[in-house]
Design a binder for these strands. Structure first.
Lengths: 229, 229
DNA sequence: TTAATAGTTCGATGTGCATCGAAGCATAAC
DNA sequence: GTTATGCTTCGATGCACATCGAACTATTAA
């Protein structure tokens, strides 16, 4: 018997469960009650759902005192969900593209890297500055790019040795443009939080930049201010 | 409201529908009755399912006389399904890896390119012959590779201009190794059928090579015969 | 100890939906 | 014309499962 897609799909198919999964796309671990609120259901129902998601190996649990923290089991799960988002966004061109919440539209976390308008701008800037070479789905860091990021403290050589690709361009479901994933994408997001240029919003997927932080972000990654529109 | 993943997931969640989708992963268009047989349900039920799949924009229909030919609506659908297969195969390491049907194991179609053992061998051969440079998820055709495929009649320059990446290595769910996707992967599969080295099996995802065809395939793409094992 | 909070188990309820039989409508073969 | 084949619509049946109230366990607070 072939591996049964329908089991996994069935887990995602329930609206309450898919809401939980979406909330966890922010990469942050959430407790059972937080997730029950996110999904707008009672704690009992949430408990049942979470049990199934863990059984189905979509989620991971960590027990901490009387709390239980859930998070996506891994990279592949996030990739899969993002892929589903791409499909649903492509199949509904009549409704306005992208999330209704403008904060989600502007900058949001895609599991462990930056997406949304700002994510796309970042990608474009790196390409137009010749630090990144756009090759469709595959992107390569140029010598200039390597130098620039080494200057920022990135151990490029270490990243190159890792299994995970350094730069993977990934279709953004709200912008339908490429943005930067891979280990470098993750590094940039971590760096942004570390420098306190931004913090995670209440909706765990949204990112709130401070005015100063946004300026520093632009400067560091050579993003030019919008000339028009 | 964000695009609703659960709707699409719900379409895949039903066992009958997922069987149909798997059958269509072969890339070939199939009629409603063929799909009903594949899913092991009556024609009425199949009709209902197919209607939903078309409504949900996962499938495309083409009417031809009294027949209706269905096929996956596009690349993204196939990518999504393959991603789901990867997840399900990773989450069940206890059962034997890969499909039970040895023919599927050996060579099968993954939407529009070659997968299975032979697909993996092809990929490895191209890498070890320095025609392809393995870079994790991103692979690049070397000068030597370009020359070789140009000699076979591939218009490499044209492929490079297209949006679709030339070589995309794609995780194989049965072998858990990379195989060659992208426009070059598609070209190789088309070439194989054109030369009549192989033909599609009854199960539309399996590929049946003739003895002679397999030999030619090996020779053309510089795959060395198994030394041991 | 008592009270509050986080999470779970159980049982009852209701609904959505896959399934198929029967009948109907096309298109094709004879 | 008649007969066969491919697909669809309708209605009835039955099952799987999401949901919540109630009651229970475990951890922290006071």
């Amino acid at each position: 018997m072939e591996p049964n897609i329908s089991l996994v799909a069935g887990l995602i198919a329930d609206p309450a469960r898919s809401k939980m999964l979406m909330a966890l796309m922010g990469g942050k671990a959430l407790t059972a009650t937080e997730l029950s609120i996110e999904a707008d259901i009672t704690a009992q129902t949430a408990s049942s759902h979470l049990g199934k998601l863990v059984d189905g190996e979509l989620l991971q649990v960590r027990k901490q005192g009387r709390h239980k923290y859930f998070q996506l089991k891994g990279q592949h799960i996030a990739v899969m969900l993002e892929q589903l988002l791409v499909i649903t966004s492509l199949s509904k061109p009549q409704t306005a593209t992208g999330p209704s919440d403008p904060r989600l539209q502007f900058a949001r976390v895609c599991y462990d890297h930056l997406a949304g308008e700002l994510g796309v701008k970042l990608y474009d800037a790196l390409v137009s500055e010749d630090m990144l070479q756009d090759m469709g789905e595959q992107s390569v860091l140029t010598e200039k790019g390597k130098k620039h990021f080494t200057g920022l403290g990135v151990d490029v050589a270490a990243l190159e040795k890792a299994k995970r690709p350094i730069c993977k361009s990934c279709l953004d479901w709200s912008e339908r443009r490429n943005h930067l994933a891979g280990s470098l994408g993750k590094w940039i997001l971590d760096f942004t939080f570390e420098k306190q240029w931004a913090e995670r919003g209440l909706d765990s997927r949204a990112i709130a930049f401070s005015a100063k932080g946004l300026k520093s972000f632009h400067k560091t990654f050579l993003i030019k201010p919008d000339v028009q529109n």
